[in-house]
Design a protein around this nucleic acid. Structure first.
Lengths: 252, 252
DNA sequence: CGTGAATTTGACTGACATCAACTCAGGTGG
DNA sequence: CCACCTGAGTTGATGTCAGTCAAATTCACG
């Protein structure tokens, strides 16, 4: 039930699958529709455009940029954010290797959010025109693409639930648990990982202030739920964190 | 700039287009991809499944229901909501005639939210398997379908901005302005309309309590921004409401 | 090291929630 | 026709969670 912030990880996509094509640009979810044969995979690889490196703090795309491509993250982390008319940011998501960026731009041929690299990162450009061509020929890929867009809708609904319904403690626990499960799905430790984003970015995303995030980290540390060392955190009591996320445990 | 809660209205879709096919089941956006010829339109009409009437308070689909069809609203209004593990609802959207329901279910072949009619309503069932078939043959429709899914992603990002960043007054103004523009796009008065949802549902959607909504209505009434009579409201100063939505006006 | 940025911690404040009492609209039955 | 009932909505008093402000501390990096 901790679907609050589902990742884009595919049901059924195993690490073996991921790693099998890891050497090529296919190390992203778009290339992992189950049931694609090797020939299809190769066709898919062929339309992948150039790779692009983005330095920490660099921009992948900006609000208003004309939409030409989707981007599959090969390496690194990104944040996407909206701008209030008054200029305030609202971070709408943190994306990691294997996830797809830019799907919100299809509707109006312009990007609707800014995408910034949280660390030195690398993406594959997937020209949308070529992709559409391919979708027509490959029903399996088409279905898969629809699943990915749908999953993004579901993810955002989870964030709405979080922002509309949860208390600060619950939001923060949900955030940690979500990151944990996404790292686990990628073959990294679900218990020890680096926060790639600042306290401020976490707070912005969760609708809280930087001070609140700091206090929550201290609180979880004091209660033995987390070990915190700068941006590295360790989940000492994942079960309790999940219970807090689910709202079944009030955490004092 | 009041894109806070964009509707699914198509850029370029005119009322003439809407009304031209209004007699058939095509009175929904899926059938309005610009550039479809009549033969294509007819093919599209043919795959539309049965119409379904849903009484006020009735259920269109529930979390966990197997996914078979998308639903185009012909008549009436719906709400969709998520459930917290602890049982609390979070309304994720209000949908009106011409909008499409169920896109979040594509990812996992199960619905991820509940959809309830706010009044006696009518939908067209669009079997997803048939639609997929058609998408392969009709690239224009395919592109259009992608735009619609993308627009839903964008809409939800707008709600995240609202829930994460805005004050109560600004949220509520954004809500009113959004409804207004959606009614306008449908050919109804953007100034006078009925709220189809209760104060409680508005509050739930905006992350506020029923009392706060009541107070905001009173406040806007006192300031001459709205006329309120039960569930009917009139926008007396749309410009100011938009300014409040944009955060450029603090509204005292 | 030294400097500025990021983070932490504490004291205070405020916006919205909660609790409670009241009003009103609409429906029902005598 | 009206008295009553019920649920939705309004209004006021009070409480609280998280925001704001300010100062101390730690970290990152030249």
């Amino acid at each position: 039930m901790n679907q609050a912030l589902p990742s884009l990880t595919l049901p059924g996509a195993t690490l073996e699958h991921l790693r099998a094509r890891c050497a090529t640009c296919s190390m992203h979810q778009l290339c992992l529709p189950m049931g694609l044969d090797t020939a299809d995979m190769d066709r898919l690889d062929q339309i992948i455009g150039r790779r692009r490196k983005i330095v920490r703090g660099g921009t992948l795309f900006r609000i208003g940029d004309p939409f030409g491509s989707l981007y599959a993250i090969r390496l690194g982390h990104f944040k996407t954010y909206q701008l209030n008319p008054d200029g305030a940011e609202q971070i709408t998501g943190f994306q990691m290797a294997g996830e797809l960026l830019g799907m919100d731009a299809i509707s109006a041929d312009r990007h609707h959010c800014n995408a910034i690299a949280l660390e030195d990162s690398e993406v594959c450009e997937i020209p949308f025109a070529s992709l559409q061509q391919l979708l027509v020929d490959m029903p399996t890929l088409l279905r898969h693409f629809h699943r990915m867009m749908s999953q993004e809708i579901t993810r955002e609904q989870g964030v709405m639930l979080l922002l509309g319904n949860m208390q600060a403690t619950q939001r923060f626990a949900a955030f940690i648990v979500n990151l944990s499960s996404r790292y686990e799905a990628r073959g990294y430790s679900p218990y020890v990982f680096q926060l790639r984003m600042s306290r401020e970015e976490i707070g912005n995303y969760l609708g809280l202030t930087i001070e609140s995030i700091s206090r929550l980290l201290s609180k979880f540390k004091k209660e033995g739920l987390l070990r915190v060392s700068n941006r590295e955190i360790e989940l000492l009591n994942p079960a309790m964190l999940k219970a807090i996320t689910a709202g079944t445990q009030s955490c004092d």
